[in-house]
Design a binder for these strands. Structure first.
Length: 887
RNA sequence: GGGUGGUUAGUUCAGCUGGCAGAGCGCCACGUUGACAUCGUGGAGGUCGUUGGUUCGAGUCCAAUACCACCCACCA
């Protein structure tokens, strides 16, 4: 028994309920079925303790649209969800919490700290999952993963060991980016460069045993305690004689050599450069070339250490000031100039990072990058939009080794063990208890953890069970589409491609769909500090998830940033409301025991054929759009089809039949109404899953829920070109009549008589066949056909159409002068058009080179306009004669 | 220093392979006709940043250029 749709569209009444219904019935869970094709998307795992923001909403809406589309097309569609342990960010939060309780992580110890962290993720971890559900995400929760799960650890360890065994992971003393606030090394990708206003200090380093000196320029004078040389360019005439001599380091009076190295730019600064191998990546290289050794002067809080003498304990920025002051006092500081350059900041906490030499673990990237470059060039990997391919290539072609060890506790601990007795380094899949070299049991595991992106870099296959050969992995891998923001191409996309190519032997996904940023209405990035973030959940609460989803995928194109306007959500809520009411209208006009007619039984009239043709035209277009990831275009087509074609025209045209008695005619209208609505619901379902399913469940003759219904395919038996054109003609006529009535301020309630003067029998027939439409849609009370010779006087308004004229008796409302003016304007317009067409057709180049259909079109236009112009002229002549006679 | 994107109606944006410029919102006028005022009908509003080029034909392709935004980069 069908129940009626409630009078008002209220998404709250059904969204949650439907989600539960889908989820509980297992519609989100695909099976491994070799008779069907899989389609797989891995959800980019949000931070486990995060909250849903617009970026997530956009991302997941897109993924859900793709998954629902493919599911309806009959694929075994797997969308695997999960969360990321976000080591650095979660650890910082837990540390902060401990701090507020007056505790520190060191006091607590590693084990207790991890317990706290797990507790934290338990408290805040479920949040984002429930928030995602409100969006309607049809992902398979039975396969949910967490990047720090035990199984994930197995995968991470396996990957680490394999890469180590291939010589692609190594440990070494390198310059890394140290965050003095997070107390850990971070990778290059995690450093944000920002132009910063600083000062350039010009410092004179005196020469040993000589009354001379050399001036260097630096922005970081506090690192001078780590200077191990001064370098000049070997070709620099100014400094040739200094090479090989010894300089005295001011403030500490240490002796350092003056060396020559090509790296030094002669025309920058003073052409002489202080070399601080332990605190600058370039100096490090220079130092290596000249065997300068290392000297670290900053501790892990970026304070000067014991190598800085009396400056020990000073923060780097305080030390900078103090050093400058003292240099000035002692006469070494020659000049200070304002200077602007890019300074690296920690991506997470925005602290200025400090390049510092440190023993860390690295992944050797160059050998891994090569196959990743090839994969793009071969077309195995595609980006949408394609321009991001260049960004991807550029990064890979200039890749540097990836620092993967972090001095954090919350994460995957390195599967590395050290023998405290003989110093052996053991990398192992299993826990090591005994040294395989010296036999000692004095073994300690490395205390560092891995970069979060190391574990998320395995996401496309670790989630499916890798390194085990599971049926899931076999069936669903490689995945099809990755949907993510362009801002994490380097962090994540590249790492997944690289690890997958290396260990799986193929790309982890075929298409990478990159989304832009969702900005506020003023185009600013949404951020916590600005407080301009718009909470998706509040939007859902007020307007429903469907309206939000629709807003996020329309009016923008892939990879481009979009502005978020509440007005657009409102407009899309109105669209949902329109659909709701159209459906309600249909249900109100279906009998309780309605059963639709078969193709053979139906007695289709023009408007039925028109709407069916239109429907069958957009289906392939929408498929095409979706296959090309043009979601916005697809959505727009459905929007227009529903609102304009179905609601504004078809429903209005069909009303008289619904209210009438004629059984077959009425039943045909009902059948077509229902059929087309069902197709609309299917097409719209991926975009607006809730409202479409809700309506669907209220419709008669549905066998299964919409979520697993079959995706529409074009029905060639229901395409009627001629009728489509006829109805389009009728629409044009109705619009023209409405236009005139509106111009003349004829109220809707005042019905008018319409007198048609058709040019030929064909048009006459079309008009007669569709006469009722003029009565309901053009406020006509009556309709007459007259022949050409009848002359209508000044009591009539005339409308000139293609192949037909229409006259309306509107005696009191007509101002003859204005009417002549109006027609004269029309005359001018048509003459202009004809001139334009004539010019085109007179153009030798156009006629000989343009495609035939374009030329034919122009010729048709010429015929049409000429005929219309004649009619307008005739009418003008009649009116002008009457005016003359009156004089 | 290198690279990318944007510049189209008052506003926010679409516009796929070149063939008489589109939408939402806003605005103006009319209208509560038995799905919907979260609505209907009609309307106003654009030299598609600028300059060249290719072409029968350019918002669309090419080359410059301006402005805005972003990304990358080890000149201290």
């Amino acid at each position: 028994m069908r129940e009626n749709l409630p009078k008002n569209y209220n998404p709250k009444e059904f969204e949650e309920k439907l989600y539960e219904y889908w989820n509980e019935n297992g519609y989100f869970t695909p099976k491994v079925d070799n008779s069907k094709k899989p389609y797989t998307i891995m959800m980019p795992p949000p931070n486990v303790t995060g909250t849903l923001h617009m970026g997530h909403a956009l991302n997941n809406t897109i993924q859900d649209i793709l998954i629902r589309y493919k599911r309806m097309q009959g694929f075994e569609a797997l969308w695997l969800p999960g969360t990321d342990h976000a080591s650095i960010s979660t650890e910082a939060k837990v540390v902060e919490k401990l701090k507020s309780e007056g505790k520190s992580k060191e006091e607590l110890g590693r084990e207790k700290f991890l317990e706290e962290s797990w507790e934290w993720t338990k408290v805040y971890g479920g949040r984002i999952k429930n928030q995602l559900k409100k969006l309607g995400v049809s992902c398979d929760w039975s396969r949910e993963r967490f990047t720090l799960d035990e199984h994930m650890n197995k995968a991470v360890t396996e990957m680490f060991v394999r890469l180590y065994e291939k010589g692609l992971i190594y440990r070494g003393d390198r310059i890394i980016n140290w965050c003095p606030n997070c107390h850990t090394a971070i990778s290059d990708a995690e450093v944000e460069h920002e132009d910063t206003h600083r000062y350039m200090y010009y410092i004179r380093y005196p020469l040993k045993d000589e009354n001379d000196g050399i001036i260097i320029a630096t922005t970081r004078p506090e690192t001078m305690f780590g200077d191990l040389a001064i370098a000049v360019n070997p070709n620099d005439e100014r400094y040739k004689e200094y090479i090989g001599k010894t300089a005295i380091l001011p403030l500490s009076n240490r002796e350092i050599p003056i060396i020559a190295d090509e790296y030094v730019e002669m025309d920058f600064g003073t052409g002489a450069l202080k070399i601080t191998p332990s605190h600058d990546p370039n100096d490090f290289e220079v130092g290596e070339r000249h065997n300068l050794g290392h000297l670290i002067v900053l501790d892990e809080d970026a304070r000067i250490n014991e190598n800085g003498g009396i400056y020990k304990g000073l923060d780097r920025f305080d030390a900078r000031k103090k050093v400058a002051e003292d240099l000035k006092e002692q006469g070494y500081l020659i000049d200070i100039k304002e200077y602007e350059n890019a300074v690296g900041h920690c991506e997470r906490c925005k602290t200025v990072i400090e390049p510092i030499i440190s023993k860390q673990w690295f992944v050797k990237m160059e050998p891994l990058a090569k196959p990743a470059i090839d994969a793009y060039n071969n077309g195995e990997l595609k980006f949408i939009p394609d321009r991001f391919g260049k960004v991807y290539l550029h990064w890979l072609e200039n890749i540097r080794d990836w620092c993967i060890s972090r001095q954090l506790w919350w994460g995957h601990r390195l599967p590395v063990y050290y023998c405290e007795s003989c110093g052996e380094v053991i990398v192992s899949r299993d826990e090591v208890e005994k040294c395989n070299v010296c036999g000692s049991y004095n073994i300690k595991q490395d205390t560092d953890t891995l970069d979060t992106w190391f574990s998320s870099g395995l996401w496309p296959f670790s989630t499916l069970g890798w390194p085990d050969k599971t049926p899931d992995l076999e069936y669903f891998f490689p995945t099809d589409t990755l949907v993510t923001g362009y801002d994490i191409i380097f962090f994540w996309v590249i790492r997944m491609v690289v690890t997958s190519l290396s260990e799986m032997g193929e790309v982890p996904f075929k298409d990478v769909f990159l989304t832009g940023l969702v900005r506020d209405s003023q185009g600013r990035k949404m951020s916590k500090s600005l407080g301009n973030g718009i909470d998706p959940l509040e939007i859902i609460d007020e307007y429903g998830a469907d309206a939000l989803r629709f807003t996020l995928v329309t009016g923008n194109s892939p990879g481009n940033d979009m502005r978020f306007y509440i007005e657009r959500v409102e407009a899309n809520r109105n669209f949902a409301n329109k659909l709701w009411n159209a459906s309600r209208f249909l249900l109100m006009n279906l009998e309780e025991n309605f059963s639709s007619l078969s193709d053979e039984e139906m007695e289709l009239v023009d408007e039925d054929k028109w709407i069916l043709t239109k429907l069958n035209e957009i289906i392939p277009q929408i498929n095409d759009n979706l296959d090309k990831y043009e979601l916005g275009l697809a959505a727009e087509k459905i929007y227009n089809f529903l609102w304009e074609d179905y609601c504004d025209w078809y429903i209005e045209m069909v009303k008289t039949r619904l209210y009438g008695e004629d059984g077959l005619n009425k039943k045909t209208a009902q059948t077509v109404l229902l059929r087309v609505l069902k197709e609309i619901l299917k097409l719209l379902h991926p975009f607006m899953p809730f409202i479409t399913e809700e309506i669907w469940q209220h419709l008669p003759e549905t066998e299964k829920p919409l979520i697993i219904e079959n995706w529409p395919i074009k029905n060639d038996n229901m395409v009627f070109e001629r009728e489509k054109e006829e109805i389009d003609y009728i629409k044009t006529a109705i619009k023209a009549i409405r236009n005139i009535r509106s111009e003349m301020n004829v109220p809707m309630s005042k019905k008018s008589k319409l007198i048609f003067v058709p040019d030929n029998e064909e048009i006459k027939e079309t008009i007669l066949k569709n006469s009722r439409k003029f009565i309901t849609l053009a406020s006509a009370e009556d309709l007459e056909i007259e022949n050409k010779n009848i002359k209508f006087g000044t009591d009539y308004v005339s409308i000139v159409l293609e192949k037909c004229e229409v006259y309306m008796p509107l005696k009191d409302l007509i101002d003859i002068t204005k009417e002549i003016e109006r027609l004269d304007k029309e005359r001018l317009r048509l003459e202009d058009e004809i001139n334009r067409v004539d010019k085109k057709l007179a153009n030798e180049g156009f006629v000989s080179k343009a495609p035939k259909n374009i030329i034919d079109e122009e010729k048709q236009k010429k015929i049409k306009y000429t005929q219309m112009l004649e009619s307008v002229k005739d009418r003008l002549k009649i009116l002008q004669n009457i005016v003359e006679e009156d004089k």
